[in-house]
Amino acid sequence: MLAGILRRVARRLLASIPALFGVVVVTFVLMRVLPGDPAVFFSSGPSAGKEEIEELRRSMGLDKPIPVQLVRYLGEVATGNLGRSMTTGQPVVLDMTRRLPASLELTCTALFIALMFSVPLGVAAALRPGTPVDHIVRMLCTLGVCVPTFVSGLLLIYAFYYLLGWAPDPTGRIDIFAAAPPDITGFFLIDFALKGDWEGWWAAFSQLLLPACTMALFVLAPLARMTRASMLAVLGSDFIRTAHAMGLSRIRIIVAYALRNALLPVLTITGIVFSTMLGANVLVEKVFSWPGVASYALDALLASDYAPVQAFVLLMAMIFVLVNVTIDVLYGIADPRVSVS
């Protein structure tokens, strides 16, 4: 069983290499084709002379033809060197390892919150289709999708920070005057917990809550609607009728029989939602000054800073592959019918 899973994972990872290669090449070419000249942007100032810009361009290797640049870049990527960011002056890999945990922590928390609400809401709607419960859930979902994250984020800040004063000021992962936890995993909640600093944990958590809720609101709809649809289909199936005919209790039928079967398609959607969230949360990161990878990549893009953008796209592609493999493995464990084929 375990050996089979490992073999499948290995095969899937190997099969994803051509796709990743394609991503690297396409991003590279796209960045070169887009207007904007990094040499102009990063030269000492508006007064920089033509020669100075040429000099900079030569030192960045931009004077060579694009195929030559591409080959050199691919060689560097293969050795794990993703280049240096012109904006921060740091190697991109270092920047990424600092910022990725922030994004992941935010996304995972948001996904957790979204699942905590969307699954019960979807189940409630499916148990009473066509009733007010169903309509209220549908309205909540529609609202969540319709309101852009920067609006809902600002609304949440206005209500909980400005009006009520419950939330801390929305400036990053932790209060500027507080000490960051020791760098163990990069996830503040885990690091604080490992250290046993619960005061710090609470501070980090209260910083995290608003942005996470903003993101959760946005993905509530796909998850809740999927749960409802899949739950409705399962509730109408033969084995649920059997369970009723055998006199099983209502709660057991709903949880052990219906929900467990209904969650299988929800699992697939969760994978897709997670990947989307990680890339699309740039607005949330901007609104809450969250030091994540998405806002980092956006800044780089505006500055025509090639290396961080390319690295970001590659990172997203890799995470997408990993998430898909994970979902596949989980699906195989949850559904005995899959492991056979």
Binding site: S237, D238, T242, M246, G247, S249, Y257, N261
Partner: peptide
């Protein structure tokens, strides 16, 4: 519902057409 639940499966039981679909696929 409570009365019915006690009756079904204990005093009054039923089997169906298409037995494979009538069983829970993941138990």
């Amino acid at each position: 519902h409570a009365d019915l639940r006690r009756l079904r499966g204990s005093a009054l039981s039923m089997i169906f057409q298409n037995p494979r679909a009538a069983l829970n696929p993941i138990r």
